[in-house]
């Protein structure tokens, strides 16, 4: 009955991991360039609204065209929502933590406004109920469900492919190299001839693209129309996932599944033993604190083992020092 214990549990976990993975990838790209993107939530909303608008406006197009087009619209909208803080940071030095948080607030209010007015479902107007939700998406832009009667949709596969893509981008292309170089040392990068402001803006925009796609997939795969409260904090939990995954695309995949399982398991525990949701939240907090604090112990033990083996002067492979992957915050200094 837990997050991993049954078909229903596993599919719920994977359904939840999909947006977490996409957002986590986006956050990682920005963090690699030393840009801190707290605005995932707003970018998700922008992506969801744009893909919905696109799917509804062009509903006569065949699915094979409209489906990718709607996803693209969401991606671009998310990118645009992140481009604003990106360029403000790169050109004017506006702190991106602050601006992305503010962009979240703007996106939320804009979504409220659109759902009440311009995008309100005509059926709601006709019925006089005015429930703030958009018209349902035409069926041919629904992402197929991978397991029937569950929420697990094809977006997960796309997200996995994209994770590999981000890995290649960051470590096997010039573009990725430059993004990381900017993140590691802005001044050195400038002397090396990298146009730093462009790359800062670009990394932020790319980051927003992933969050926007997450929003588009949530609508096309799960809800199939925009409803209130659809974004559900993925923009924030995605940050935790990205950091748990060590800001590495291939680490973010398991991190997103595990974190998704944690959230699903918590919800199911609430239902199974009827504990208040607040107990689960508090436990979740403790677990996050505990896991993130356990790192020093792991390092200490590894260092000691390395030191011991070094002193024995063996040639054992395991004695090789651990590859250290400093976090961007450390790199920045």
């Amino acid at each position: 009955m837990g997050g991993f214990g049954s078909v229903s549990g596993i599919t719920q976990t994977l359904a939840k991991a999909t947006p977490l993975l996409l957002v986590g990838l986006g956050i990682a790209i920005a963090f690699r360039a030393s840009m801190i993107n707290i605005g995932g939530e707003g970018q998700i909303m922008a992506g969801a609204m744009a893909s919905t608008m696109c799917a509804l406006a062009l509903r006569d197009l065949p699915g094979i065209v409209l489906l990718p087009l709607s996803a693209l619209a969401g991606t671009l909208a998310g990118g645009f929502w992140a481009f604003i803080p990106g360029i403000l940071k790169a050109r004017l030095g506006a702190n991106e933590i602050l601006t992305t948080v503010m962009m979240n607030g703007i996106a939320l209010q804009l979504t409220n406004f659109l759902l009440r007015g311009p995008m309100l479902d005509p059926a709601q107007i006709a019925a006089g109920t005015n429930i703030p939700q958009s018209e349902a998406l035409p069926m041919h832009v629904w992402l197929p469900r991978l397991v029937p009667r569950t929420l697990f949709h094809a977006g997960f596969i796309v997200a996995i492919v994209l994770a590999v893509g981000v890995y290649i981008l960051l470590w096997h292309t010039t573009l990725g190299y430059r993004i990381r170089a900017v993140g590691q040392n802005r001044f050195a990068s400038r002397y090396a001839g990298i146009p730093v402001p462009q790359y800062m803006t670009l990394s932020m925009t790319l980051s927003g693209c992933f969050c926007g796609l997450a929003g588009a997939f949530e609508i096309m795969g799960v809800h199939r129309r925009v409803v209130e409260g659809f974004s559900g904090g993925y923009g924030f939990s995605g940050i935790v996932v990205a950091l748990f995954g060590y800001l590495h695309p291939l680490g973010i995949i398991p991190a997103s599944v595990l974190f998704g399982g944690l959230l699903v398991g918590a919800d199911r525990m609430q239902r199974a033993v009827q504990v208040p949701s607040s107990l689960i939240i508090a436990l979740n907090g403790l677990i996050v604190l505990f896991v993130v604090s356990s790192r020093v112990w792991v390092e200490y033990r590894n260092n000691r083992r390395a030191a011991q083996q070094a002193s024995q002067d063996t040639n054992d492979d395991t004695a090789a020092p651990l590859p250290t992957r400093p976090t961007p915050e450390q790199e920045r200094a």
Binding site: G2, G3, L258, L262, G265, M269, I287
Partner: peptide, 12 residues
């Protein structure tokens, strides 16, 4: 993280 999960995902 995985070890801690069962604590949370108590079956019922």
């Amino acid at each position: 993280l995985a070890l801690l999960l069962p604590a949370l995902i108590a079956c019922g």
